[in-house]
Amino acid sequence: MSELRPDLARIAGWIAPESRVLDLGCGDGELLAHLRDHKQVSGYGIEIDMDSVIGAVGRGVNVIQRDLESGLAGFEASSFDYVVLSLTIQSMRHVEAIIDEMLRVGRTGIVTFPNFGYWENRWQLALGRMPVSETIPYQWYNTPNIHLCTLNDFDALLVSHGARITSQIVMHQGRRITFLPNLLGSLALVRFEKD
């Protein structure tokens, strides 16, 4: 069995066995398949891309094809233990709405995103160019990312939406960064709950 991507492995580490998980933008279902096989986790993925949906079906993952921008109507309040949004929020139009929906539907939210505060990004900006890096591998004119933020920005948003941060991990190239996270980490993972 192939190794789980390091950031997904960190997310998996936050999820309790036998819980119910909703994975928003689940791609080909890698995380959910892993959680099912190793932690007896049940749940659903949401994905808009047809090829990814078919990939998830191939893994035997329950996937619902829909656009996250339209929210999570159809999912009852507090019907999941965890709602995961992995490397998707930066390209979403309705960021505040999806945070509210995550807090409505799940007990615990988990969001991961590229940290714009990473030093290389700051350095490239300081040199007068838009950052292009491993976690933000696009030019300004072709990027799908319309809502980039730093670790501190995201924390502030959560707090303003009535969420309490219960854990936070920052990574770079698959390794955890503990020193100066908002400067040295290129990828942020935040776990939160309704306050």
């Binding site: 047809m50 949906v53 998830a56 079906v57 996937v63 619902i64 094809q65 829909r66 999912f75 019907s79």
Partner: peptide
């Protein structure tokens, strides 16, 4: 079809939903 899917979600049943272009 989404009504059926919603009922299946409410009943916590395993379901895949796809909307084909």
């Amino acid at each position: 079809s989404k009504e059926t899917v919603k009922a299946l979600l409410d009943a916590k049943k395993p379901v895949v939903y796809a909307e084909i272009e």
